[in-house]
Design a protein around this nucleic acid. Structure first.
Lengths: 133, 133
DNA sequence: GCTTCATGTTTACAAACGTAGTCGTTATGA
DNA sequence: TCATAACGACTACGTTTGTAAACATGAAGC
């Protein structure tokens, strides 16, 4: 599949930038989509032009984050990496970088900063209780 | 206090990049420090030259993240922004961007990904219990 | 057939970033 | 007094990112 011997096609995905991430969110929400359809979802919100979306789709394709599937004249774009993988990776990066890899420290910090509402806390407690057994 | 009328000195701090953050960590650990001293702490670890550290210190100063305090021929650098503020900001950004602002979702995700050890979970539970009343 | 529209590809360009070298100046030891 | 080392300031340069225009090409209506 997709031979092309000699091209560097490690299955490894590059880091996704902020703008690129906005496009990924659209595709995670619903896919496959055309460039125009992606634009419909984000161009308004971010004040982008279709050209911008096209560029981002190209870059994401180059980064192996999405896969263009030919559909006549155009392409339909599909996410290649799962949202949960991305989210997990980013979360881990943050925890590693800022909390020495200790996830509990992150929660502690959020709690101290009052970043956690009473509801959040109950929810987390319930979650943990569930996890535990 | 640092009059200098006319210069754009909003107390607002710019976003700190990854490399810059490494320097901040050193200064948060101990300060004030000279450029050479900062280098002693990170140049080995990151394979940087002293020149690189000097550049980063300049940029951080321009971003109002640190404040150079004259000491004869040289400067001693101090963090201006608190580590907890930075950490809080970054955490919030992540939660907003990836979890729709719901911190509990982040914790849920970490839990599902087995990113939380048994110890982490106990620790968090204890923390929450403490917080609650 | 020819104009027009949609679409991917190429090129552009400024700002931010990572990484570092050079320059000018002053303290300092010989 | 003179060479040298230590510093901050300035300059440099390739890459990534944000944002988009120009271009080529094929589809589609007229």
């Amino acid at each position: 599949m997709s031979s092309d011997v000699g091209s560097k096609d490690t299955g490894k995905v590059d880091r996704i930038s902020e703008a690129e991430h906005a496009v990924m969110e659209v595709l995670w929400e619903r896919s496959p989509l055309t460039a125009a359809e992606v634009c419909e979802q984000v161009c308004g919100e971010r004040g982008w032009s279709l050209a911008t979306v096209k560029t981002l789709l190209s870059r994401l394709t180059a980064k192996n984050a999405i896969a263009p599937q030919p559909d006549g004249r155009r392409f339909l774009y599909n996410p290649v990496i799962a949202r949960s993988d991305y989210v997990g990776g980013e979360s881990r990066r943050l925890v590693d970088r800022l909390f020495g890899g200790r996830a509990a420290s992150l929660v502690a910090h959020l709690a101290e900063q009052e970043a956690l509402s009473e509801d959040d806390m109950s929810e987390i407690e319930a979650l943990l209780k569930e996890m535990r057994k």
